[in-house]
C-alpha cells in the first residue's frame, strides 16, 4: 500500500531549520493497522500529513499504490485525497454550520455524487456509527464522542482505502474512547481498511497490529503482531 523511502521534511522557523522527518523508511501493507507513538513535536503528525498527501517531503518518496505523492500535481493529490484517503482529527474538525448529515455529505461533494445519493449514503454512514437519530443535529448539539463518530462516518462514507487518524481519542474520556476504538476496530475488520493512527495513548496503540515510535524525526518499529505471511 505505502512505501516510504528516506523521507526528509525540513521546516524553516526563522533562520532555524527544523528537521521534522529525518529520513523515514516505512512500508505499510494493505489492510494493516499501524499505530504511531512518540513525544510531542517529534514528527508524528508530519508523517501522517505525508501519508495523506497534505504536505510534500523535502526529499525522499511517499509511494501510495505505485504513485509517488511527492511528484504528483496538486490536483492529482487532491483527487487521491477525495477518493482514497479518509481523515479523522483530534478536534473532529466538523463544519460548525452544517448538520451531522451535511458534514458527512461534504466528503462526497468532490466525487460528484448526486444530492439524493449523497443524502442516502450519509444517512447510512451515520447509522453505521450509531447516529441514525442525529442526522439533523449540528456539531454543537452533539457530545465529543458523537462528533467523533460523525467524523468517522465522514471519513468512511466514500469507502477509502486508507484511514488516517490523528489522536482520534485525544479529546474523549476513557469510556467514550473505548467505545470509539471498538467501533474503529469493527470498521477496520469489516471494511478491510488500511489504518494509521497517531496516538499518545498506549491503550489505543495496543489495539494496532504494529506500533512504531517517532523520536527526533526518525521512526522505529516497537511491536509487530501481524500474522506471518502465508508461506
Amino acid at each position: 500500500m505505502y512505501e516510504l523511502t528516506k523521507v526528509i521534511k525540513d521546516y524553516h522557523r526563522g533562520r532555524e531549520v527544523v528537521h521534522a522527518l529525518a529520513g523515514v523508511d516505512l512500508d505499510i501493507t494493505d489492510g494493516e493497522w499501524l499505530a504511531i507513538q512518540g513525544p510531542t513535536g517529534h514528527g508524528k503528525s508530519t508523517l501522517l500529513q505525508m501519508l495523506g498527501g497534505l504536505d510534500r517531503p523535502t526529499s525522499g518518496s511517499v509511494v501510495l499504490e505505485g504513485k509517488d505523492l511527492a511528484g504528483l500535481r496538486e490536483s492529482e493529490i487532491t483527487a487521491i485525497r477525495a477518493n482514497a484517503i479518509g481523515f479523522i482529527f483530534q478536534t473532529f474538525n466538523l463544519i460548525p454550520t452544517l448538520s451531522a448529515q451535511e458534514n458527512v455529505e461534504a466528503a462526497l461533494v468532490p466525487l460528484g455524487v448526486s444530492t439524493a445519493d449523497r443524502r442516502a449514503m450519509a444517512a447510512s454512514a451515520l447509522e453505521g456509527v450509531g447516529l441514525g437519530d442525529r442526522l439533523r443535529h449540528l456539531p454543537s448539539q452533539l457530545s465529543g464522542g458523537q462528533q467523533q463518530r460523525v467524523a468517522i462516518a465522514r471519513a468512511l462514507v466514500k469507502e477509502p482505502m486508507v484511514l488516517l487518524a490523528d489522536e482520534p481519542t485525544g479529546n474523549l474520556d476513557e469510556e467514550t474512547r473505548d467505545d470509539l476504538m471498538a467501533l474503529l476496530e469493527d470498521l477496520w475488520r469489516e471494511l478491510r481498511l488500511t489504518m494509521v493512527i497517531v496516538t499518545h495513548d498506549s491503550a489505543v496503540a495496543r489495539r494496532a497490529q504494529r506500533i512504531a515510535v517517532m523520536r527526533a524525526g526518525k521512526l522505529a518499529i516497537k511491536q509487530d503482531t501481524r500474522p506471518a505471511p502465508a508461506a
Partner: peptide
C-alpha cells in the same frame, strides 16, 4: 482556516 483546511483534506479543490 481550519474549516477550509479540513475541506481540502476531504478532497475539495481550491476553486470550490
Amino acid at each position: 482556516v481550519r474549516e477550509f483546511g479540513t475541506l481540502k483534506a476531504l478532497g475539495w479543490r481550491s476553486r470550490r
